[in-house]
Amino acid sequence: MSELLWVLFDLVLAGLTVGLAWVAVATRELRRGVLLFVGLGLLLAVIWARLRAPDLALAEAAIGAGIAGALLIAALRDEIGVSAEPEDGYTASRRLVDLGAIGLLLALSWGLLDAFLLSDGVRLAEGVAERLGESGVINPVTAVLLNFRAYDTLLELAVVFAAVLGVLSVGPARPALEAGSLVLTGLVRWLVPILVVVAGYLLWVGAHAPGGAFQAGAMLAAVAVLLRLGGVAHAGLPGTAATRWLLVLGIGVFVIVGLSVMFADRAFLQYPGDIAGVLILVIEIAATLSIATALALAYLGGRPVGWEADCDSPQHRVNRGAADRGGDA
């Protein structure tokens, strides 16, 4: 009986998700699309919880729906007053695309069905469980992210770094909003310390329960978003030089830890078993700060004021106006 109820629940949840995605993608009205997309993120968080992926539920709520939602809503605000004319001449023929989409749907279903029939269903689950004791942490997802496949996570930090470098080189940040209403600033004052504490907790707990650097970093970035909404122009970021150091801290510490163990006659990132937990925590703290800084800068949408003040020697300063408008002379 309860089996059947679960199937019903799954059907409703999956159907709702697909329906919401359909409308979000099909709508011509961007505002509705963005709001539906944030809703979709929350539904996905429920699905992750249902499929026993609590780490992902947290990450999806904080990053997939939270930060991505904040970015998209901020982008919507820029969009106001802009005509919706196509920016890009290229569009494919609708009928051809529909045909291709159906073909792809069938092909992917066929391939996955065959894959499931072929597989024993265990995959790497047992392998991870066997070696979990050597990883330095108890949460298996953290063990995969920061030990077994730590190199993936290093490159993932590099992807975040690349995106933020791109954002910083494209143009100046959005102008800040004027200071918000009293209610909002009051709320911000209450929420900020709570979020900082939650971020610290998520970081600490990641070793043995759902949580970790990415969820914690997103929480800290949420602080920046709140501050910005409350009228704080720098969104809590320190000065330019300190911000630059914060951005590179995560990758820097990761690589230095990896190389230090390598110079001790081990492989790159092969942590010694007895201090693996400590090393992972050190890496995670650094990564949290870098991720939060990067996401906060992404929310600003460009270079903060004075970002490139120290980039050139004094005699070149005159040219900076031209460079700020993006010209490469």
Partner: peptide
Amino acid sequence: PDPVPHALVLTGIVVAVSATALALALAR
């Protein structure tokens, strides 16, 4: 559950949000 795909998806979510941030900055 198998933790490996969970870790991969966590990576994927972060990569997706990074790409979104860059795309939005270019669009702006």
